[in-house]
Amino acid sequence: MTETLKISNLHVAVEGKPILSGVNLTIHRGEVHALMGPNGSGKSTLAGAIMGHPKLEITEGTIELDGRSILEWDTSERARAGVFMAFQRPMAIPGVKMADFLRHATTNVRYPSRKEGEQLIPMREFRKELREKMAQLRMDEEFARRYVNDGFSGGEMKRAEILQMAMLRPKFAVLDETDSGLDVDAVKLASQSIAEIGGAEMGILIITHHDRLLEHNVPDFTHVMLGGRIVETGGVELARELYTEGYDQVRARHPEDAAIEKEMTSIEKKVASGAA
């Protein structure tokens, strides 16, 4: 049996406000899924729910890894079980060097039973591997000595996320707009690297608005999210339709979800203008 990440009837709320309402999605290891949808439709919320963001409240449904619910698992446990997420907006950790952070993370993920304070993987071995991975991503060695995401450009942050994925070798990875902020060549390289790292090994969920990241990661399935639900699932041709023609046709095909979407985003606009 191949390993599976299975999301069933997932309902998620933030501060009492429902965001996702009944998401179903099953990813097997080795598959590439694309997740598309207009801004504010709930894509990042789904990613966050998979990783166990503390602010997200699961009101209904399940997330299972190989048949076991992970809802009660701490974020750290999920990471150690092989779940990864490349953040849309990675956090800066000033004063902590990329290399130190990654050595710690890599050790924990590769040796999930490691206790706090126990040994890290040997420096030499780790450095060698990190250097190789960085070369593959055409990152300067200097990068390892910089503080995590501190003062990184948008592009550097996204490449750092891919580097982390490469080191952690997850079973399942959610890439949340990993192409945004990258220029054309960088996206190409990213796309290639993800394919090389992932290959047949990972189950990948790629959240994107464009086609470039998919170039070397041709999706087996494309999902469209609208108003907090996955409203359509198709093959690579659906992705093509969406990035060439936008979401209006999808909205037309799903008027009820489009209405919910409108409501969600209008609340957001009101909040935004109220705060201004």
């Binding site: 990783m51 503390p54 701490d74 990471a79 953040f87 950790i93 993370a105 993920v109 982390q164």
Partner: peptide
């Protein structure tokens, strides 16, 4: 959350 998502407690 960010650090924990990388396996840190």
């Amino acid at each position: 959350f960010y650090l924990k998502s990388r396996g840190l407690t």
